[in-house]
Nucleic acid binder design. Sequence first.
DNA 1: TAGATTGTTAATCGATTAACAATC
DNA 2: TAGATTGTTAATCGATTAACAATC
Lengths: 224, 224
Amino acid sequence: MSVNESEIAATNSGGQEPDARKTSPAVVKRLSLYSRVLQAMEFDGQDKVSSADLARRLGLNSSQVRKDLAIFGQFGVPGFGYPVMELRREIRRILGTDREVRVILIGVGNLGSALMSYRGFLKQGFTMLWGFDADPVAAAQRVRTRIPIFHVDDLEQQIASRPVDIAVLAVPQEAAQGITDRLVALGVMAILNFTPARIQVPAGVHVRYVDLSLELESLSFYVQ
Amino acid sequence: MSVNESEIAATNSGGQEPDARKTSPAVVKRLSLYSRVLQAMEFDGQDKVSSADLARRLGLNSSQVRKDLAIFGQFGVPGFGYPVMELRREIRRILGTDREVRVILIGVGNLGSALMSYRGFLKQGFTMLWGFDADPVAAAQRVRTRIPIFHVDDLEQQIASRPVDIAVLAVPQEAAQGITDRLVALGVMAILNFTPARIQVPAGVHVRYVDLSLELESLSFYVQ
DNA sequence: TAGATTGTTAATCGATTAACAATC
DNA sequence: TAGATTGTTAATCGATTAACAATC
């Protein structure tokens, strides 16, 4: 140990991330949930909240809430709780949702066009930049937004003009890996994959699967 | 212990579920993944598969695969592996996807209409019975299927005529709890919730959340 | 028989929960 | 000061992985 403990504590109490990308997905997901609840509380004019409150609202354990938050700094005040506005701001900073997060969508079919105009994304502050489709004319007819739709061949050109943070994949299953390879080559580091295809990416690129059929299959198990 | 171990083993080797509903969601999810991979293998004419194979295809550990499968019975043959067709059939039986699984969708808006006509559901054998919306006429214009769309007031009448297994919620956030209460009263035991609202249900009713914004927020964390 | 692979037990790992001193 | 609630350590729980005897 070359640094003493008070130095470590000092570093972290300012709210610096630890060795960030190692945080478990479950923790990140909960941070996102806390952020939502805090948003509602802030809207209601509530100025402080305890870990027990937060836990109750989300069906979690209060120890877990405190532990999750303590990973990133000391945001609470013993005997008082957490200041709502400040905590929310901190969590947004931690998640990176305080900055512009640029999103593109590839595959403007049935599902893709719904995702492109999904209000929830806008509401949470995401910037949906562009859509891409193998048939941009047909795609444009499906979607009711002013977001420009390009031919998928223009992927390279567009991303070169303005880098994107997250790509949403809603292409046919067979096209998933090919598009993924191109996205990765273009430096896209995060993909939200709505196809059931398991896609291969180099280490460091983050993929999240939203497998709609799989959700139904899982539920099917519990209802028989 | 009133029953001896060989009796228990005998009961389970036929492929009977254990005290079923206690199985962890993670295991159920993987069963669903195995089922998919097996479907592809069956299509390719492959007749046997080892736990190591299956694990490699899904980025899992072979012990985990064997353990998951062993929960429900002895489907493998030591020194040989698992017979593809039979294993797939067993998993489908365990998941309940070998029978008709009836699904309804409430909230035929942008997202809802895309979900209603989502090919993946059909492909996995789910039966999308009906859609419901507060404005069925407008909703009918959005969706390109022959699935009938009813007024949400007709929920009770329709479900009385033919019970459903799973309800998909794609209504505005504020309407989520109200609709949920009605679904629960109608005996619906599984809800796939696409709204960000945390909904309250009595014990025994299963809810799964697909929170689209939350997925983006989680990814946002990893790309900063 | 020799080789392969299962089913299962034991070991490990990580995540959740409980407990409590520190502190506002 | 007394009461409340944090941050953190220790205990518990559950899930994953390793190991290996059983067996085809």
